[in-house]
Nucleic acid binder design. Structure first.
Length: 305
DNA sequence: TAGGCCATCTGGTCCT
DNA sequence: AGGACCAGATGGCCTA
């Protein structure tokens, strides 16, 4: 049974940036989950009603049993006897129990995978780029989430405001072409401007600001992945993105944050940019933290004197 | 049409 | 014994 999830899972535009993981399920999301849960119950019911005679694996199992029987009947000395406990004869009752057990296991496995997919869907909604039309694949969602976490923790660690370029570079490390384009489109950026290979074209002040982001300790080489675009940063693939107005892209990130949030694109149907606001808050907190540490340190110094 | 992505089934292994 | 987890196989759908 194949179930298609073609329905658009759209993040409501009203969802604020403050709805972070624990509260990230809006009423809309809850409704979606309820709907899915109902679908799954139907699915499970169908599995229960399914004719056990139709289970493919059982046919194979029956074939195995036949083989065993043949072996016994032949009594061929040339073939080594199978060691270990002898297989019990598959009676009709045993067969029936096996079928039921197998169907229950299948239903459990389906539910387990659905749970995993729900978690991934929640993750999609909290990573920077959430598009109505272009849903991130599972693997890309995980990669983007990993980059995002790293980028945010780097901001907290350094207490410095990164520029947009280096932030997006960090986000796009190891992502595929479509995802990189999505991130670029999401930020209304020209992907050319943050390509690692072209970093020498970035103004000097940008490169300085990017320093802490350049060395991505968790960047991976994705060994063993079959083919590009996975695991590569081949820049050629990024050029397919449609041209935008790139004027603000080279401006320092935090100078434009608030104005960007009130720009028309903020409310458009295209991917939202809530993380810009989040970034603003995080960096503000980091600055306050830094100031507080400096203040306390100074005070302790005075006390010691 | 090939390749990517996905859902599902399945058998194996480990744990309770 | 039964459930959770995992990886391989398979087939369907979609897109470049």
């Amino acid at each position: 049974m194949t179930k298609s999830y073609t329905e658009d899972s759209i993040m409501p535009e009203s969802q604020s940036a403050s709805t972070w993981p624990d509260e990230c399920l809006s009423s809309h999301d809850e409704h979606e989950l309820e709907k899915k849960s109902e679908e799954r119950e139907e699915c499970d019911a169908m599995a229960k009603d399914a004719d056990p005679e139709d289970v493919d694996g059982l046919n194979r199992l029956e074939e195995d049993e036949d083989d065993d029987d043949d072996e016994e009947e032949d009594g061929d000395d040339q073939k080594p006897k199978r060691r270990g406990p002898k297989k019990k004869k598959m009676t009709k009752a045993r067969l029936q129990r096996f079928k039921i057990r197998r169907m229950k296991a299948n239903a459990r496995e389906r539910n387990r995978m659905h749970g995993l997919n729900d978690a991934l869907e929640s993750l999609r909604k909290v990573v920077p780029c959430y598009s109505k039309t272009q849903k991130l694949s599972k693997i890309e969602t995980l990669r983007l989430a990993k980059n995002y976490i790293w980028a945010l923790s780097e901001i907290l660690r350094s207490g410095k405001s990164p520029d947009l370029m280096s932030f997006v570079q960090a986000l796009c490390k190891g992502l595929s072409q479509p995802t990189t384009n999505l991130v670029a489109g999401c930020l209304q950026l020209n992907p050319r401007t943050f390509l690692p290979e072209q970093s020498q074209e970035i103004p000097a002040h940008m490169q300085t600001a990017s320093a802490s982001f350049a060395a991505h300790p968790y960047s991976y080489q994705t060994p063993g992945l079959p083919s590009p675009p996975y695991g590569t940063m081949d820049s050629s693939h990024i050029f397919h993105v449609k041209p935008h107005s790139y004027g603000s892209a080279l401006e320092p990130f935090f100078e434009s944050v608030l104005t960007d949030c009130t720009s028309p694109s903020w409310n458009s149907g295209t991917p939202t940019i809530p993380f810009r606001l989040i970034m603003y808050y995080i960096c503000s907190i980091a600055r306050l933290y830094d100031m507080e540490v400096t203040r306390v340190a100074g005070k302790e110094g005075c006390d010691q004197i």
